[in-house]
């Protein structure tokens, strides 16, 4: 089992080590993932509904769906 895990790990390590174009691509991927998860997700994309469970979130949506009607005139 351990040998198999080591073999798989070696497969990936060697693969990454021998990369050429892939190295640049991985840098881009890592920067992109950092921006998406560490910046956008944390600072800009928090879930809007505040309820801690489905029922509370349901009440919130119910509230919004039944008040939209009075205020929205979409153009």
């Amino acid at each position: 089992m351990l040998a198999a895990v080591k073999k798989i790990a070696r497969f990936y390590i060697d693969g990454f080590r021998n990369m050429t174009v892939g190295r640049t691509l991985w840098i881009i991927i890592l920067i992109k993932l950092a921006v998406i998860f560490a910046v956008l997700r944390l600072f800009f994309f928090q879930p809007t509904l505040q309820g801690s469970n489905a029922e509370e979130r349901g009440d919130e949506v119910l509230q919004q769906l039944t008040t939209h009607n009075d205020t929205v005139t979409y153009e």
Partner: peptide
């Protein structure tokens, strides 16, 4: 490599911008 994970942003948008829909 460049395209991967760009779709995840759409899922963020569902939760934040389209919460009633979600």
């Amino acid at each position: 490599a460049i395209g991967v994970a760009t779709g995840i942003i759409l899922e963020f948008e569902f939760g934040t911008n389209w919460s009633n829909y979600s």
